[in-house]
């Protein structure tokens, strides 16, 4: 009894978050099944990418500022943070994070009379998100730090001439200029962070109840059918779409950041490789 494609979509469209058919397909392995399940897994790639980028943006700003600080007590930890996360493979970071998180006491920790539950930290949705968040924060901090250092001297002098100092100067002049200068490189970071989410279920973090990301299901099909020519191109297709969407959204933001400039001096977004981290 084979299902129609619509029935397949109903059964497996939300399988990656535990809704629909309990067991994965064991026969047929139709193109429709592969498209549906792999697409369902993409939910997790979106989840990891969007949340890590959102939280990571704020931390990255803080670390970029800390790296610029005169006080070594603030600067040194920020430099080490960036060094460790940018200097080692994400693959190893995932593995170490999982191994370290499972060491937390399972019963929870009592701090100052408050009971903290820890068992959820080892789940991919929390643990892997934490790693991706710290990882993208480190890479983005480096981008913003570079942008901060390349703000034209004249801009800062002009700001001071207008009587802007300290926090006001930072929030009205330095920060917006830093964002504007760093944005093209930050767009690349966003794209490759989405790509990096495919590593989650390949290093350390286990899949619960066969709920995984796009690559987890593609790998499932490739193992079952011994034919890599269908599932992997499907993931590739989904990711090209995703890349186009990310480029579009970040391009709009870039236009907004550059809206005050004459058209010929605006910085355009150019893709630069930053693949495996």
């Amino acid at each position: 009894m084979s299902m129609t494609c619509w029935e397949t979509v109903q059964a497996y469209g939300l399988r990656s978050i535990g809704i629909g058919e309990n067991l994965l397909p064991k026969s047929d392995f139709t193109i429709c099944q592969q498209f549906t399940l792999i697409g369902s897994g993409l939910i997790w790639n979106l989840y990891f990418g969007v949340l890590a980028l959102t939280f990571g943006f704020f931390l990255a700003n803080a670390i970029a500022l800390a790296r610029n600080a005169r006080n070594p007590m603030i600067r040194k930890p920020a430099e080490w943070f960036v060094f460790v996360f940018r200097g080692s493979p994400l693959f190893i970071q995932f593995f170490l994070a999982y191994e370290a998180l499972v060491l937390l006491p399972k019963g929870g920790i009592d701090i100052l009379g408050i009971h903290l539950n820890t068992s959820w930290t080892t789940r991919a949705w929390a643990g892997a998100l934490l790693v991706l968040f710290l990882n993208t924060a480190a890479y983005s901090a480096e981008i913003f730090h570079g942008a901060l250092k390349s703000i034209p001297k004249g801009d800062l002098e002009a700001a001071e001439a207008y009587g802007l100092t300290g926090w006001k100067k930072f929030i009205r002049i330095e920060w917006p200029t830093m964002l504007r200068l760093g944005w093209p490189a930050y767009t690349n970071e966003a794209i490759f962070l989405f790509h990096a989410t495919t590593l989650v279920y390949f290093s350390g973090f286990p899949a619960f109840a066969q709920k995984g990301d796009a690559l987890y299901y593609a790998n499932y099909f490739a193992d079952k059918t011994f034919n890599p020519f269908i599932p992997y191109p499907i993931v590739a297709f989904y990711f090209i779409l995703l890349t186009l969407i990310v480029t579009f959204i970040y391009g709009r933001v870039n236009r907004h950041l550059n809206r005050h400039l004459p058209a010929n001096t605006r910085s355009r977004i150019r893709l630069r490789p930053q693949l495996i981290r």
Binding site: N22, V102, A207, A209, Q210
Partner: peptide, 25 residues
């Protein structure tokens, strides 16, 4: 495990499955 209504958690090696019980996963 998957077919009998238990919640399955998969690992690539036997070693990791045992480690999962040891550390309470």
């Amino acid at each position: 495990v998957a077919e009998n209504g238990m919640q399955l958690v998969e690992y690539a090696t036997p070693e990791e499955t045992v480690a999962a019980v040891k550390n309470g996963e």
